[in-house]
Simulated assay, not measured.
Amino acid sequence: MQARQLPAHRGWSWLKEGLLLWRKNPALMTFLAFGYLLTLVVVSIFPLIGQPIASLLMPVLSLGVLNGCRAIDEGRRAGPDVLFSGFRSNLQALVAIGGIYLIASLLVLASTMLADGGVLLKLMGGARMDPETAQSPGLTLALLIALTLSTPVIMAYWFAPLLAGWWKIPAPKAMFFSFFACLRNWRPFLAYAISLMLFGAVLPGMAIAVIGMVIPLGATLLSFLVPLVLVPTIFASFYINARDVFGLPGDAVHSAPLVVDDDEHG
């Protein structure tokens, strides 16, 4: 298993290829995406323990979505139960990844208290935002701190579930490899982020606004239909970039261990 270093233009293709994967089996792909989100929402409803359990389950369900995407990509038959297939593959490591991600996220939020005295933390907990709070310089600084510190956390998590599930790698090593794989591929990921912003938010929003000025009912209908396609397409694109960077188990080109070049990243 070796991480490829991809050219920047590959990042522009991930969302488009995600759409093509969705078109192969829209019913299953849509179920996987919204089933993942709904399961986490339902679990997180439970007081006190809901949010931590949802965080622990995230990598397990993520692997289920990736397994479903892989089945669609390879033309294999798969049913809705594939969403929960992560429970049968290196479950201990997957739960550990969720635990590490939860702790790291809490540390990031705790660090923002130095800038705003805990305002952002309260907002994340469901507190209402008044106009004075929204314009507070402390809140702006807290958001910048959260964005800066959460980026490496997300990088360490991004590929970790598939590395643990498909290659049976322990949680710390999977997150280590994921971080450096993202770092080596920052250019395509930057292009991917821009494409998500353009095609996932800006252009659909403009289209709905323009149609709404002419046919209000059409805009309402489009507001409902766009997420039904866009959300599973984005989930499918996660599989596409993972396949591009790490390949699939059994690929000869990815049989060597991932090597981190200290000179490159130091």
Score class of each variant (00 low, 15 high):
residue 140 T to A: 13
residue 21 L to G: 09
residue 6 L to G: 02
residue 151 T to N: 06
residue 54 A to G: 07
residue 31 F to S: 03
residue 246 F to M: 07
residue 163 L to Y: 03
residue 126 G to E: 11
residue 221 L to A: 09
residue 192 Y to M: 14
residue 12 W to N: 07
residue 113 M to A: 14
residue 202 V to N: 09
residue 189 F to T: 02
residue 218 G to Y: 01
residue 192 Y to L: 12
residue 57 L to R: 00
residue 149 L to S: 00
residue 134 A to V: 10
residue 17 E to H: 10
residue 178 S to E: 08
residue 188 P to A: 00
residue 238 F to K: 02
residue 164 A to P: 06
residue 87 F to H: 05
residue 243 R to G: 07
residue 142 A to S: 11
residue 100 I to E: 07
residue 25 N to A: 09
residue 18 G to Q: 05
residue 190 L to A: 14
residue 222 L to A: 14
residue 248 L to M: 11
residue 197 M to C: 12
residue 131 P to I: 04
residue 201 A to V: 14
residue 16 K to T: 12
residue 177 F to C: 05
residue 61 L to D: 08
residue 122 K to F: 12
residue 148 T to V: 11
residue 202 V to D: 07
residue 81 D to W: 13
residue 139 L to D: 05
residue 175 M to V: 13
residue 46 F to N: 13
residue 20 L to M: 11
residue 117 G to D: 08
residue 244 D to N: 13
residue 136 S to K: 11
residue 155 M to D: 10
residue 35 G to C: 04
residue 171 A to Q: 02
residue 139 L to A: 03
residue 90 N to F: 02
residue 13 S to L: 09
residue 159 F to Y: 12
residue 19 L to C: 15
residue 173 K to H: 09
residue 130 D to C: 01
residue 261 D to P: 15
residue 226 V to W: 00
residue 188 P to R: 00
residue 201 A to P: 11
residue 191 A to Q: 12
residue 56 L to I: 03
residue 8 A to Q: 06
residue 116 D to Y: 09
residue 184 R to D: 13
residue 245 V to F: 01
residue 132 E to R: 14
residue 224 F to A: 13
residue 16 K to F: 14
residue 195 S to Y: 11
residue 261 D to C: 06
residue 175 M to H: 06
residue 10 R to E: 14
residue 48 L to V: 15
residue 141 L to M: 08
residue 216 P to M: 03
residue 243 R to M: 12
residue 186 W to L: 13
residue 193 A to H: 07
residue 179 F to T: 00
residue 101 Y to I: 05
residue 224 F to V: 13
residue 129 M to F: 08
residue 263 D to L: 13
residue 236 A to S: 07
residue 91 L to E: 08
residue 161 P to D: 06
residue 195 S to V: 10
residue 63 L to R: 01
residue 260 V to R: 04
residue 173 K to T: 13
residue 66 L to D: 01
residue 90 N to I: 05
residue 95 V to K: 08
residue 89 S to R: 14
residue 265 H to F: 15
residue 66 L to H: 05
residue 121 L to H: 11
residue 152 P to R: 04
residue 68 G to F: 00
residue 157 Y to N: 07
